[in-house]
């Protein structure tokens, strides 16, 4: 509860500062050091007709900050699209080798789909948020899977 109140107070202060015409003063302020970067990889997984597919495993391989693989699952967030998202995390972009989309539940959830592998270079840089020195880079993939 206390954390929630603190968060709300912080948000209110950020809002007030923004309304007064100053840029966001989040806690990642300019430090005496180097810039900080965070990444988010996200996107949608559908069949060839554009229908969302749930239950697809999204596996990011490479040496991602001590974790050999980051595994996600596509979920339907708004009932219309099957999204995946890593959330905000920090890694060196060169360390994500591949992103695999694998159907692990067979015929469930719309059918048995072929796997697809992409690299981060196949993704589109969707946005960049500069809360200097923390820069957030977001990369999006739009994946269409074929049935086996």
């Amino acid at each position: 509860m206390k954390n929630l109140i603190n968060k709300l107070i912080r948000l209110l202060c950020v809002w007030v500062i923004g309304m007064l015409g100053f840029s966001s003063c989040e806690e990642h302020s300019d430090e005496y050091g180097t810039p900080i970067t965070y990444f988010r990889y996200w996107g949608t997984v559908t069949d060839e007709a554009g229908n969302p597919i749930e239950g697809i495993n999204v596996i990011m391989s490479g040496n991602i900050l001590g974790m050999p693989n980051v595994q996600l699952k596509t979920e339907s967030y708004d009932g219309e699209k099957s999204n995946f998202s890593t959330g905000i995390f920090s890694t060196a972009d060169t360390h994500i080798a591949t992103i695999d989309f694998v159907d692990v539940d067979g015929e469930e959830n719309g059918g048995d789909f072929q796997s697809v592998t992409i690299t981060p270079q196949d993704m589109v840089q969707e946005s960049q948020f500069d809360d200097m020195p923390a820069t957030r880079l977001e990369y999006k993939a739009t994946i269409k899977l074929k049935k086996k």
Binding site: N6, I9, I17, L20, F22
Partner: peptide, 16 residues
Amino acid sequence: RRRLALEAYRVMKHQS
């Protein structure tokens, strides 16, 4: 304007 913004930032700073 600046003073009000600094007051809001001061609250955040003390939280930090």
